[in-house]
Simulated scan of single mutants.
Amino acid sequence: MTPEDSGTLRVRGLSRVAGGAVLVEDASFQVPSGGVVALVGPNGAGKSSLLRLIAGTASADRLPDAAPARRRTGRGQASVVLDGVDLLALRRRDRARQVAVVEQDARAEFALTVRQVVALGRIPHESSWAVAPTESGEVDAALARAGLQGMADRSLATLSGGEQQRVQLARALAQQPRLLLLDEPTNHLDIRAQLDTLALLREIAGTGITVLAALHDLNLAAAHCDHVVVLAGGRVRAVGEVGEVLVPALIEETYGVAADVVAHPRTGRPLIAFSRT
């Protein structure tokens, strides 16, 4: 472990190409581990693709040779290092013990109860021949943390979209990861549920888990996250603490809108007001 790896999440050289189009271009950034990091950017910026690359569920590609100015990267050079461990170098099962993913609009394919879905998070920790137990301390703790104790025996199909998203978050917590990746975790949630979800992510980070969440709402990122990674056109445009990155000039350049950033009257955190340029 090098000094720069200790206490950090360091992403290096991740690229993704599909159908000849570059979705993610040599994405590299470094942020402190054990906090809440927002991944923001316009629609089509490549946020979901980058999350899949970090999770290892998609392989890093080499960039097209037709782009000579671009750095050529491939899986050999790409890395996702968390506290000195390259997660992409781990076997799939070992990586599943380190990284949990909550996809946008995640759905179970079978008729399962909430408890059974959450228990799926224990699979990476079980032997190859074991069935994930639905009665375990980790499952109960995940249900409690997500506020789902009263829904444990309900069918997932009977829940609202927002409730199903909470179930998937509980499943990820049962996995006991060191890195939690979420793609639009506040999607389909009302205002109170959004705030509750972001508060829960802060609690999770307080236990030492690094949380990286793709968010489309800049004010949620400004109010609840420690650091922010700005992605546009598949490239990382800025990285840093929220107050240093989410400034009017960068917001206008990235989103094409005018922005005023003021202090929230209650929290003192950045509050962003938008207008057409």
Score class of each variant (00 low, 15 high):
151 M>N: 11
185 P>C: 03
112 L>E: 06
140 D>L: 10
1 M>N: 02
207 T>H: 12
277 T>Q: 09
240 G>M: 07
187 N>W: 04
67 A>G: 00
34 G>D: 01
147 G>W: 11
122 R>L: 02
113 T>N: 04
15 S>M: 07
239 V>T: 14
92 R>N: 13
208 G>W: 07
67 A>Y: 09
252 E>L: 04
155 S>M: 11
243 G>P: 02
150 G>I: 09
26 D>N: 15
112 L>H: 12
79 S>H: 05
77 Q>Y: 01
91 R>V: 02
161 G>W: 12
182 L>M: 12
65 D>N: 08
90 L>M: 11
8 T>M: 15
144 A>D: 15
156 L>N: 05
99 V>L: 02
118 V>A: 06
169 L>N: 08
267 T>L: 07
176 Q>S: 12
24 V>C: 13
114 V>P: 09
222 A>R: 02
265 P>V: 08
232 A>C: 10
77 Q>I: 07
215 L>R: 00
179 L>N: 07
116 Q>C: 02
150 G>F: 11
52 R>K: 15
190 D>K: 03
102 V>Y: 09
218 L>T: 05
226 D>L: 00
257 V>Q: 02
141 A>N: 00
245 V>Y: 09
249 A>V: 13
216 H>G: 08
77 Q>L: 13
44 G>D: 11
167 V>H: 06
18 A>F: 15
274 F>W: 10
142 A>G: 11
253 E>C: 05
269 R>W: 09
142 A>W: 11
192 R>E: 12
168 Q>E: 15
208 G>K: 02
84 G>S: 05
61 D>M: 01
103 E>K: 10
55 A>K: 01
165 Q>L: 02
154 R>W: 10
93 R>W: 09
277 T>M: 00
24 V>E: 09
2 T>S: 10
261 V>M: 12
66 A>N: 14
114 V>E: 13
19 G>W: 11
248 P>A: 06
126 E>A: 11
227 H>S: 08
230 V>R: 00
214 A>H: 10
225 C>K: 01
145 R>N: 06
196 D>V: 01
262 V>P: 04
272 I>V: 13
77 Q>E: 15
11 V>E: 10
152 A>F: 14
125 H>L: 03
135 E>K: 12
125 H>S: 07
56 G>E: 10
87 L>S: 08
272 I>N: 04
132 A>V: 03
7 G>E: 11
28 S>M: 09
114 V>G: 09
98 Q>D: 06
61 D>Y: 03
64 P>A: 06
66 A>D: 15
145 R>P: 10
236 V>P: 08
260 D>P: 03
20 G>N: 07
93 R>F: 09
7 G>Q: 08
140 D>I: 00
257 V>T: 08
19 G>R: 06
199 A>Y: 03
256 G>F: 08
97 R>K: 15
59 S>T: 12
73 T>E: 12
101 V>Y: 15
100 A>Y: 10
49 S>I: 01
251 I>C: 07
224 H>D: 00
39 L>Y: 03
275 S>R: 14
218 L>Y: 04
87 L>V: 06
156 L>Y: 13
8 T>C: 14
162 G>Q: 03
83 D>E: 12
64 P>I: 04
228 V>M: 05
184 E>C: 05
160 S>K: 02
